[in-house]
Every structure is written in C-alpha cells, then in structure tokens.
Amino acid sequence: MDAVIELDALEVRFGARVILDRLTASLTGRSIGLLGPNGAGKSTLLNTVLGFHRPFGGTLRVLGRDVRTAAREIRSLIGYMPENDSFIASMSGVRFVRLMAELAGLPRAQALERAHEAFFYVGLGEVRYRALGTYSLGMKQAAKLAQAIAHGPKLLLLDEPTNGLDPPARARMIQLIQDIRARGDLQLVVSSHLLRDVEECCDQALILKEGRLAAFCNLEEERKANRRFLELETRGGSNGDFLAALEQIGCQTAAGAQGRIKLILPEELEVRRLYEIAGRENVQIRRLSHKRDSLEDIFLKAMEAPGGRL
C-alpha cells in the first residue's frame, strides 16, 4: 500500500527550538491517529503537512508529493478541520462552506450544491442558513467538518475533532468519522490527545512525545491479536486439571491468584469450547474478558519509556 505520509528524519524548528525531532515513519493506514500529550508536536506535524511550517531538515511526503516543492498541490488534495474555532461568525454556515469550496477550486454551482450536501451529511441541514456565530460548540465542530469535506479531498486532517463536545455530540462526531473511514474514498489523519477517539477511528497510531516518535502501532493488528487473548476468573474444581485440559486443546495458559487464568486461544478454537471443558472439570467460569494490550497500555508505556521511545 502506498504511504499516505512519509516522514524521513523530519525536523521542524521555531527559531532555535526543535519542535519535531527527526521523525521517521511511513504511514499507510486508511485512518491514522496522531497521539500525544499537549505540546508533543501533533498540530505542528499537521501544520507542516499543510505547508504552514517549512521543514528545517529531513523530508515529508504527502500522498507521494514533497511538501517543500508541491505544497500547493498537496493542499489541493487535503481537507483540514482545525482544532480551534475557525470560521467567519457573521456568515451563514452554507455560505461559508461554499466560499471554502470555491477557494478549493469548485465552480460556483457545484460548490453550492456540495455545501448543502456536506451540511446535511454532518447533520446540520436544518441550521445551514443560520450565522455560524450562533452555533453551539457541537454544531461548530460539525460545520468545520463540513467545510473540510465539501470539496471532496483525498486526505482529511482532523485536529482534535471531538474537542469540547458533550458525550452525544462526541458519539455523533465519531460516528461520522467512522462512516467516512468505512467508505474508503479518502484517507484520514486524526490528531487527538484522547486515546478513545484514536482507538475508535484509526487503523494506525503514531505516538509523539516532546517532538519525537515515541511509538508507532498498527491498531488493526493489535485488535486481531487481542481477540485471542483472554482472562478468566474461575471458581470450584481443580484449576490444575482445568489448565491441563486447556493446554491439551492447544491453549497457552498462565495461572494467577484466586482462580484467575490468562490464556491465548489457538486460531481455530472457539470460546464455547472453554465452557464445555469447564463444565467437564466442574469449574465455574465467573468472568471472561478479552485482556487487551490496549492503546492506553501502549501509550503509557511510550510515555514512560526512557528517551520517549518504546
């Protein structure tokens, strides 16, 4: 798969301050998450992709184009949803999105049509003629998403898309992002400090810490691997016999205290078989959970790792 974003020793400086420190990665996922605490360099990386900052060293290629030489072409392929409130308060929503679509190169009629469509798509169809300044926070976020997709970009950059949203509004935004990802027409980069957002929306995650690459994980593969990783809480019977029976059918097991068992299921084995064996061995399975090495675990390890690198 072609890389969406290729970083090769990318360095960005503000004066003498190094903001991004020799980042190297090749991001190929359909939906890529940028994770990191505040000040890690997530927004700077997005702004460098947009050509707002010039790399001090190294290279950055977006959809195969170098930001140094083809910044304009790259911007023509991108839809950008910034972190902060960005709009013209006195303009109606649909007029603003139309303006932005026209600046992206759409003819007037098509820009108007797609502005309406984008507003309906993000769920603001009924308020599209209202001035943007009168929108609630959730509506403003949705309007920002509408302007980012109206011109039909190939790559969508979302900077903290759920910032300040209440739970229902956040769920709606996540649903929209998942829907866009599922369509497969465009690729996504989601920058967030919220692990849940990235976990729910992304296939890959790039974790930044103090401008350095702290970890890079393929969430899709992690999810697949985690599906076979179980933790059981058992009561009664002999745990030793139960464990032996599990190992006989190919499970890797590790016994813990108070009847807890961790195990990895072989590919072909279904969870139902565990209950059958437990019944035979007079063991009650009180709780069964997929013990995941979650993104949170990966993130925390990355943050604690010396030198900020797993």
């Binding site: 947009l50 707002f52 304009r72 072409e73 911007r75 023509s76 991108i78 950008y80 910034p82 902060n84 409130d85 960005s86 709009f87 013209i88 308060a89 006195s90 932005m100 600046l103 992206a104 190169g105 302007q147 011109h151």
Partner: peptide, 18 residues
C-alpha cells in the same frame, strides 16, 4: 480583521491558495 478574529486564515490557507 474578521478573518483574524475568527481564526479563519488557517482555513483559507489550507486550500490551494497562497
């Protein structure tokens, strides 16, 4: 000034518009 006050410049300049 309205574009600056509303942080709209990033949206203008995120397009193929210098």
């Amino acid at each position: 000034s309205p574009d600056l006050a509303n942080n709209a410049l990033s949206l203008y300049l995120a397009r193929p518009f210098s």
